[in-house]
Amino acid sequence: MSSQVELNYSWFKANLASLIKQHRGAHALIHDRAISGYYPSSLEAVTAGLTKFGEGNFSVEVIDDRVEDLGFYSHVGSALQA
């Protein structure tokens, strides 16, 4: 069975294009595949999620289409799996 985090992420990816128009850069608190609130930082969103829904019952996604860089791991990480 998929977790709330996975189900919310599928919903989030499907709706990212519309969310980004008004909320780029915000951190979305998601519960049961619906936005519960927008926060300036992820930690604020997680704190609200834990308070409202409890652990495992929400997720937080960044409303952005830019990718970050993981340095060493981004570029040679696959070689570490050997």
Partner: peptide
């Protein structure tokens, strides 16, 4: 660790999705 969401990262073979934890 508690799973909180996801994040995409660039790499040699294109973007990869990782899980975020607290």
């Amino acid at each position: 660790l508690m799973r909180v969401g996801h994040m995409e990262f660039g790499g040699l073979h294109g973007p990869r999705t990782h899980t975020r934890y607290l």
